[in-house]
């Protein structure tokens, strides 16, 4: 038995290797994302200076060997600010994905399994879904001030109903499975049924959903920051950088283009990775391809 399980382990590894070969874009996207995460984590050690340091003399210097990405209109180093901006962007993506998936999972399981609560929960979700995320963010910011947490909450709330709907649909189909009925028949209590028999079925589609949520959260954060309703201006974020560079775009386009392209690359990578994971984790779609 022991040897058998170890062969399946190498089998899984080999399968992932084969998958990467047959889905080269997914592999590339994964690598890009890893590089971005490492860059964000190791930002202080990658030839950067203080991202908030204003330096009047070298203003709007174009990219050069000394300052790889040039400097902005306040003389701040764009390379430094791009790396520190990655922290905000990736963090928002991660936090929103984690929060909306975990809350959505909880609410979705309750809604799908406890039919009496279902109608109420789903109407509340419909209500939440009808709130435009950007308006909610602007509203929250005007009440409690711009901060990382406000932005994260504002982006998370409208994402939750989408996750709830996904989870609820899976729960509704799994609860009819004979093995769930068998579990009821042997006296397994409801929370344990949800944990043992229902939850594992939700995980693969949720991983895929999480990537889409993360990508759209990163985009929304950049948009909010660009509009001035996102992360406060003293924190370097890609949206803030683009908003500030916008005025001087004709003379110093790199101030907008560098964070803009990085954002596009990051979102593309997350989305492509999500598509790849979907092919890998959803056998129905994988078979069709």
């Amino acid at each position: 038995m022991q040897s058998r399980s170890s062969t399946t382990d190498t089998g899984t590894l080999a399968k992932w290797g084969q998958f990467c070969r047959s889905h080269p874009f997914t592999a590339v996207a994964g690598v890009i994302l890893i590089v971005l995460v490492l860059a964000a984590l190791l930002a202080p050690y990658l030839g950067t200076v203080d991202p908030r340091k204003i330096n009047i003399l070298p203003r709007m210097r174009p990219p050069s060997p000394q300052a790889w990405f040039g400097s902005d209109q306040l003389g701040r180093d764009v390379w430094t600010r791009t790396l520190y901006g990655a922290r905000i962007s990736l963090m928002v993506g991660l936090m929103v994905a984690l929060m909306s998936i975990s809350l959505g999972l909880l609410i979705g399981m309750i809604s799908g399994y406890m039919r009496k609560l279902d109608a109420v929960i789903m109407r509340v979700m419909d209500g939440l879904m009808s709130i435009p995320g950007i308006l909610l963010a602007i509203g929250l910011v005007s009440v409690s001030g711009a901060s990382f947490i406000t932005v994260t909450i504002a982006i998370t709330v409208p994402e939750i109903p989408r996750v709830v709907r996904l989870v609820r649909a899976i729960v509704l189909s799994v609860r009819e499975e004979p093995y769930v009925e068998a579990a009821i028949a042997v006296g397994t209590k409801t929370p344990l049924i949800l944990w043992r028999h229902v939850l594992p079925n939700c995980v693969p589609p949720l991983i895929v959903q999480a990537t889409y949520v993360a990508a759209s959260a990163m985009l929304t954060e950049a948009l909010l920051s660009f509009l001035g309703a996102g992360t406060p201006p003293e924190i370097p974020s890609w949206g803030n950088m683009m908003a500030e560079g916008r005025i001087v775009f004709p003379i110093a386009p790199w101030i907008v283009l560098i964070p803009g392209c990085t954002l596009a690359l990051a979102i593309l990578a997350v989305n492509v990775l999500g598509d790849g994971l979907r092919d890998r984790l959803d056998p129905k779609i994988a078979k069709r391809m």
Binding site: P178, Y179, E181, A185, V186, G187, T188, K189, L192, R196
Partner: peptide, 26 residues
């Protein structure tokens, strides 16, 4: 109860042993 469809009445993600002892451990 023993169900009709032998392919759906056992949770595919759990070992046979886990499925059998689920009831008694409850």
């Amino acid at each position: 109860v023993i169900f009709q469809d032998p392919f759906r009445s056992l949770n595919p993600r759990r070992t046979v042993g886990q499925s059998i002892i689920e009831g008694p451990t409850n």
